Simulated scan of single mutants.
Amino acid sequence: MKILLVIDRLTNPHAGTEGQFLLLIHLLQKAGCELRVLILANSEWLNANPLPCATVIVGSSSIKSPRTWWRVYAQARQAKADGFELAHIFFNDASVVCPPMFALAGIKSIISRRDMGFWYNPIYRLLLPFTGKFVSCALSNSHAVAEVTANVEKIPRAKLRVIYNGFNRALSADSKVTELETLKLSGAAIFGLVANIRPIKRMQDAISALSRLDFGLYNPHLVIIGAGDPSDLQVLASNLGVSNRVHFLGSRSDIPDCLQYLSAGLLCSESEGFSNAIVEYQFAGLPVICSRTGGNPEAVSQDKTGWLYEVGDVAELSRAMEAVLAEPECAQAMGITAKNEAESRYTIDAMLEQHLLLYRELIGVKS
């Protein structure tokens, strides 16, 4: 089976969508698929990390440029001539340009949607309902995301599919992380937040919630793992008197090693499709405290695998953190339940099999 995978650009292999894109390449190759990756714009990361399959750089990514549309069409015609009948498209600009150009060349398109559409601007809202007419399937990673896609992009519900993110449960924590080892040995209860530092992640809420805890009774610390400039958050922590309790580890590739030190995983986003971080927390056996938005309620069950709170409600978030500190055995039991659920719902094998079934259905190939 020949599959064309398309994405705007690849710059951070640890980011949610890009990480899943790279994982999908690995899994589909292992399953015997012939792949060709089409990337609209080059990047330093891609130059330093060639993909393990045929890769074409379009060299133009602006949806306002006729050159982008023409180059995509030329690549679609070549792909069709080479026997490719289906394209799976990731990110915003590619999902605008590619479906109509691929349709002209006789290639069916799947667009992936993995967030609640915070990126929808007036131009996208105008174009997507039109270019969406050429889409064979809109694939989302949660039912919440699928609902937004149907409403904004006017994709018929018969074309909507949901496949949850897959996670490599073979990953295990087998190395010490010096910074966290020292904290743990000091008796700290560590809350972790894994995400790149962006306004939509509302990391200031976690810092504010931490500052409300009783440091006479407990010894809580907050660890933030992700790329981005932490300077504004560091100023906030200093102003709230918790700078010695908030630690920024930056972007890391040893996330499982870091998670073994945590008491709970946090996610404070104002918008979230289906969070890889939540799945990572759960596979690590952690209870999750997260905002009630997007696909989060599909992954976290209140008082069973964690706590849900309203976006921006710092007091409610702080109370959930205090519950972890006050009843650690209960929190640990929630983490065990979360791990069991994750191992049955978010496996690599399940994600791969569902993708293959969808591809075969659209191409018309029997299993």
Rank of each mutant, 00 (worst) to 15 (best):
F167R: 08
F167T: 04
F167M: 12
N168S: 15
L171S: 00
L171K: 04
L171Q: 10
L171D: 02
A173S: 15
D174V: 14
D174H: 14
S175Q: 15
S175L: 11
K176T: 13
V177R: 12
V177Y: 03
T178R: 12
T178M: 09
E179L: 06
L180N: 05
L180K: 08
L180V: 08
L180Y: 07
T182L: 13
L183S: 05
L183D: 01
K184Y: 09
K184W: 05
L185Y: 04
L185A: 15
L185K: 15
S186K: 14
S186N: 11
A188Y: 04
A188P: 00
A188F: 01
A189M: 05
I190C: 03
I190R: 01
G192L: 11
L193C: 14
L193H: 09
V194G: 09
V194K: 05
N196T: 14
N196F: 09
I197T: 12
I197P: 07
R198W: 07
R198M: 14
R202S: 06
Q204C: 03
Q204G: 15
D205R: 02
D205P: 03
A206E: 10
A206Q: 11
I207D: 06
S208G: 08
A209Q: 10
L210Q: 10
S211G: 06
R212A: 12
R212I: 07
L213C: 07
D214M: 06
F215D: 06
G216N: 15
L217K: 15
L217F: 01
Y218D: 03
N219F: 09
P220I: 05
P220F: 01
H221Y: 12
H221A: 13
L222P: 03
L222G: 04
L222F: 10
V223R: 01
I224K: 01
I225M: 11
I225F: 10
I225W: 07
A227W: 07
A227Y: 08
A227N: 15
G228C: 10
L233E: 04
Q234G: 03
V235A: 13
A237D: 03
S238M: 03
S238Y: 01
S238D: 06
N239M: 11
N239V: 07
L240Y: 06
L240G: 01
G241Y: 11
V242Q: 02
S243D: 13
S243N: 08
N244L: 03
N244Q: 15
R245V: 00
R245K: 14
R245M: 02
V246D: 02
H247Y: 10
F248T: 11
L249P: 04
G250E: 04
R252G: 05
R252W: 02
R252F: 05
S253T: 15
D254G: 13
D254F: 12
I255S: 03
D257P: 10
C258D: 07
L259A: 01
L259K: 00
Q260M: 12
Q260H: 09
S263I: 04
A264H: 07
A264P: 09
G265P: 11
G265N: 11
L267T: 09
L267K: 02
C268I: 02
S269L: 07
E270I: 06
E270G: 14
E270S: 14
E272S: 12
G273H: 13
F274T: 11
F274R: 10
A277F: 12
A277C: 12
I278F: 00
V279R: 00
E280Y: 01
Y281D: 05
Y281A: 04
Q282Y: 00
